[in-house]
Amino acid sequence: MKGMSVIVKTISRILAGFIFLYGSYIILHGHLTPGGGFAGGVIIAASFILLVLSFGAAEIKEKSSYTFSSIFESLGGLMFLILALLGLFAGTFFFTNIISKGAPLKLLSAGIIPLANIAIGMKVGAGLLSIFLALAASHYIMKE
């Protein structure tokens, strides 16, 4: 897969970071506004997919992107599991919200829910990115 023309490249250069920031905003405000880990994670994956599509699969270092996305996916899953186990370590149940709730309607509130959102976002984004790389990037799959 070759890259596209200079116009597409220039625009996607500017937009990819903005899309990443928007996805992060959706994840971090998941407990206050619509959105959350699922939506934000997919948006972050979309920002990387935009770069891959516009610059072409030959441009990216495929091996290291696979390694990165697997590391992030495992990290997300591990973080979610640790957050769930925190309640068990504190002497209550699995998935207890033990961190203080904070003031409502503020960004830093709701205990473990924002952290769990971040974990879910990392997991979903990295997982979908590696699925996309496997489906669309060329070298990994076939040598026709």
Partner: peptide, 17 residues
């Protein structure tokens, strides 16, 4: 839960499993 988005409260707290 402290979350104002009830859907987020359900998927990440009440129904975390």
């Amino acid at each position: 839960t402290g979350a104002t988005n009830i859907v987020a409260a359900i998927i990440l707290d009440y129904r975390g499993y």
